[in-house]
Computed example of a mutant assay.
Amino acid sequence: MRIGQLARETGVSVRLLRYYEEQGLLAAERTPGGQRVYADDAPATVRRIRTLLDAGLPTRVIREVLDCVCGSDAEVEPCLSPMLREQLQGIEERIARLEGSRRSLARLLTPLA
């Protein structure tokens, strides 16, 4: 399947598909003319990438776990649980910092009594 067809089928832009390839998340063969040709399972791979990105995982982590996704787009092998828990903890820590920033900013905006 060519890149335009993959983009239409997945709703992901051609530019983003190229980025996924640059990041080592998606593989393509090249025709003699240099055009990208993707395997039949590429749409499922793109959906998995989108699911993992939506979960807040950076592409460097997705590259490590993508081959361990099994079944549906969101199921991963149990051996990945520690890595995913670590990612979740990082997200929770960032949320806590943002909530602290929000409280501080709200205090600054509270009129002095």
Score class of each variant (00 low, 15 high):
Arg18Tyr: 07
Thr110Gly: 10
Thr59Cys: 15
Ala27Thr: 14
Arg2Ile: 07
Asp73His: 12
Thr110Val: 13
Glu93Ala: 12
Arg63Ile: 03
Pro43Gln: 06
Ala42Trp: 01
Thr31Val: 06
Ala7Met: 00
Arg47Met: 10
Glu99Arg: 15
Ala74Asp: 11
Leu80Pro: 06
Leu109Glu: 14
Leu17Met: 11
Arg60Pro: 08
Glu64Trp: 04
Cys70Val: 15
Thr10Met: 04
Asp73Val: 12
Ile62Arg: 13
Gly90Asp: 04
Gly33Asn: 15
Val65Glu: 10
Arg85Met: 07
Ala113Gln: 11
Val12Pro: 03
Ala39Thr: 09
Tyr20Thr: 08
Gly71Phe: 04
Gly34Phe: 12
Glu92Met: 01
Ile95Gly: 04
Glu64His: 04
Thr59Arg: 12
Glu99Trp: 00
Val69His: 11
Glu75Ile: 00
Pro82Gly: 01
Thr59Glu: 09
Gln23Lys: 09
Thr10Phe: 03
Leu57Asn: 00
Ala27Asn: 08
Gln35Asp: 08
Ile62Pro: 10
Ala106Trp: 01
Ala28Met: 02
Tyr38Ser: 05
Ala113Gly: 15
Ala28Tyr: 02
Glu92Thr: 04
Thr51Leu: 09
Gly24Asp: 05
Gly11Cys: 11
Ser101Ala: 11
Gln87Arg: 12
Ala44Lys: 05
Val14Arg: 11
Pro78Asn: 08
Val65Ala: 10
Leu16Ser: 14
Ser104Pro: 02
Leu66Val: 05
Thr51Ile: 09
Ala106Leu: 12
